[in-house]
Amino acid sequence: MRHSTGRIRSGLAALVLAAVTVLVAAAPAQAALPSGCALYPSAPYSSGGRIYYSATATCGTSNPVISRVEAGLQRSGTLVANVIQTSGGTTTLRASGSSGCSAGTYRTYAWANDKNTNATEGATAYKSLSC
């Protein structure tokens, strides 16, 4: 009797341990950028046969923690070009790029990270661009 109670206890303990392991593994890897920081993707625009896109992340003058900004150009929801800027930690970081233009529906998609790997992502409105 004592033997079977012990087996039940050890079995339950293993289940709890496994559940905790799953919970820890499933925890979000990243939180949002800290308060006071912001990500500003800029709407893409066309000029001279190219489409220009950019994104800026800021964290206020006294909080130089922005470490990475990526701006991506989406065409009909698919990433067709991207550009990345990195820093050891700064208050404002901008990534801008251009891509060959063919008429379609575009938007800028952006990612920003701080030094602690906190991250925020977002997008501009969709734009119907001709070239």
Binding site: A26, P28, A29, Q30, A31, A32, L33, L39, Y40, A43, N118, A119, T120, E121, G122, A123, T124, A125
Partner: peptide, 16 residues
């Protein structure tokens, strides 16, 4: 959004 017309939101995390 800052365009005064459209709406959006930002997000973080890696989803489930």
């Amino acid at each position: 959004r800052t365009d005064g017309v459209t709406y959006g939101f930002q997000f973080s995390g890696s989803g489930t």
